[in-house]
């Protein structure tokens, strides 16, 4: 799996079948995406789930409303389902 942050516009173009996890930012302008695809047009790319999780804790104001972050386990457990 590969770990990215994309704009919402880019996210809409992705192959949803290959996405494991996705969540939009609080302002809905960008997405955290974990996918098996390799993406080029991204805002950030991370080496692994741990790095991505740490990023969300460091930038909580953009991603979660409780000033925490996204735990690594959530990437596995909150399954992305297109349209839901």
């Amino acid at each position: 799996m590969k770990y990215y942050i994309t704009t919402t516009e880019v996210f809409e173009t992705l192959n949803k079948d290959n996405i494991q996890y996705a969540v939009y930012s609080i302002d809905k302008s960008k997405y955290i995406v974990i996918t098996s695809d390799t993406l080029d047009d991204v805002l950030f790319a991370f080496n692994d789930a741990s790095s991505l999780s740490i990023y969300t804790f460091d930038n909580a104001v953009d991603w979660v409303g409780d000033n925490t972050g996204i735990e690594e386990s959530e990437f596995d457990e909150i399954e992305y389902i297109e349209g839901l």
Binding site: V23, Y24, S25, I26, W63, V64, G65, D66, T68, I70, E71, S73, E74, I78
Partner: peptide
């Protein structure tokens, strides 16, 4: 009491082994 901007989870009921910090 949470808002539509919570954008993460809220635990309603949780239990783990006494004294453990593991999820």
């Amino acid at each position: 009491g949470w808002s539509a901007n919570l954008n993460t989870n809220i635990h309603l009921f949780s239990s783990t082994t006494v004294g453990s910090t593991s999820s």
